[in-house]
Simulated scan of single mutants.
Amino acid sequence: MTTSAALRATLVEQLTADGTLTDPAWRRAAEAVPRELFLSEYFQEVPGSNPTGYRAVHADSPGWLEAIYTNQTLITQLSGNTRPGDARGRTVTGAPSSSSTLPSLVLGMWQQLEVRSGQRVLEIGTGTGYSTCLGAHRLGDQNIVSVEVDPGVAERAEAAIKAAGYAPALVVGDGLDGHAEGGPYDRLIATCAIRYLPHPWLYQVKPGGKILATLSGWSYGFALVLLTVTGPGRASGRFLPGYTSFMMARPHTPPPRQSITLAPGDQRPSRIDPAVLGTWTGSWVAQLGAPSAERMGAGGQQILLDVATGSQARSEPDGNGGWTITQRGPLRLWDQVESAVVQWQERGCPHQEAFGLTVTEHGQRVWLGGEDGPGWDLPV
């Protein structure tokens, strides 16, 4: 029988070989922290199910330990309340609401944070506690403060962290408020996606300190940004290479909506191929242009919807190789998206690492190329 230590060593070797683990200190943390302590149970997708179904995997299930030491995200909660223990022996559905993120992303982000020994870190989103323990191993318990919004998730994480032999400061609360009592901090790392930088973070991290967070929105485009705090309430930095996504922070999720009724509206030809909205960076650029819109559809048939105003936009083939856009409502959603995408395309469709973010007390602006380039305000 393969042991946890052997599986862990193999995973660490794989992450080192593929260039994920480059810092010896973080390699030692990955070798030391047993991931299975944080994953006594988890969900796996049922292949081919529609809507997506999940089956529970427990410590007595075949392959339980082996899956933990593969480089994959393992879901630990659905729809904010369903745990694997609630679904033993049956298939369930729901939206993932808590997970243990794939190890390569967790360790990669810790390295991207550029943290040094002796520095204090505020972690937003304790989750299972695995990432928290990696940080505690590297920096010491006294230098880690981790905040979790879900009391049940926080309770299970606390037990697992204690079982692993670590004792960082754990807080139950809204991570978007940070944790001023434990500050100031040298670094902040967020394991949830946000629509904009919460103001408390910008005051709780020291000037010269760094914030690593994933920006997203209601169309679910994602981009990872590393900011340097330049003063109270101010920061600037650039987006990073790669492809990072997280579940949205619960206060930043879209408002509830009813079933969609596609209504008539004004029509015109599209200047862009709607399929670009389904690409990694294209979806994110479109989201910058229309931050209040939710995006649905695929390929050349896209739907944009703004719940607050009832504004709609949709694309459909015109039969001649182009696309017809139908818009209605006070917001011309496709106009907004199209303008942003065209500016991006005119500069060669670069990945998000060509973009940056400047935060001041007056607003938060994403820019392309440089601060004097095209830009879009975040919905603060």
Rank of each mutant, 00 (worst) to 15 (best):
T2V: 10
S4D: 11
A6H: 05
A6V: 06
L11F: 10
L15H: 07
A17W: 04
D18G: 00
T20Q: 01
L21K: 06
A32F: 07
V33C: 03
E36W: 08
F43N: 02
P47A: 06
T52E: 07
R55I: 13
E66M: 09
L74F: 11
Q77A: 02
S79H: 12
R83G: 06
R83H: 14
G85W: 09
R90G: 03
V92D: 00
T93F: 05
S98I: 08
S99F: 05
L102Y: 12
V106C: 07
V115Q: 01
S117R: 00
G118N: 06
E123V: 06
E123K: 06
G125L: 01
G125Q: 08
T126G: 01
G135K: 12
G135V: 00
A136S: 13
L139R: 00
N143A: 07
E148C: 02
D150V: 01
V153M: 05
A154E: 03
E158Y: 05
L170D: 02
V171W: 02
V172Q: 13
D174K: 04
D174G: 01
E181F: 02
A193T: 08
P200W: 06
W201H: 11
L202P: 12
L202G: 07
Q204H: 07
G209Q: 08
A213P: 09
A213M: 12
G217T: 11
W218E: 15
L224G: 03
G231Y: 06
P232G: 03
R234Q: 15
A235H: 12
L240S: 13
P241D: 02
T244P: 08
S245D: 15
T253I: 04
T253V: 13
P254L: 04
P256H: 01
Q258P: 10
I260C: 09
D266M: 10
R268K: 14
S270E: 05
D273M: 04
D273R: 14
V276K: 09
T279C: 00
G282H: 09
G282I: 09
V285K: 04
Q287E: 10
S292N: 15
E294L: 14
R295D: 01
G299D: 11
V307H: 14
A308M: 09
G310R: 11
S311P: 10
Q312M: 14
R314M: 04
S315M: 02
P317I: 02
D318E: 06
D318T: 11
W323C: 05
T326R: 12
R328V: 09
L333S: 06
L333Q: 04
Q336H: 13
E346P: 10
R347T: 10
G348L: 05
C349P: 05
Q352N: 09
Q352Y: 13
G356S: 11
T358P: 02
Q364E: 14
V366Q: 09
G370R: 15
G373P: 12
P379Y: 01
V380G: 09
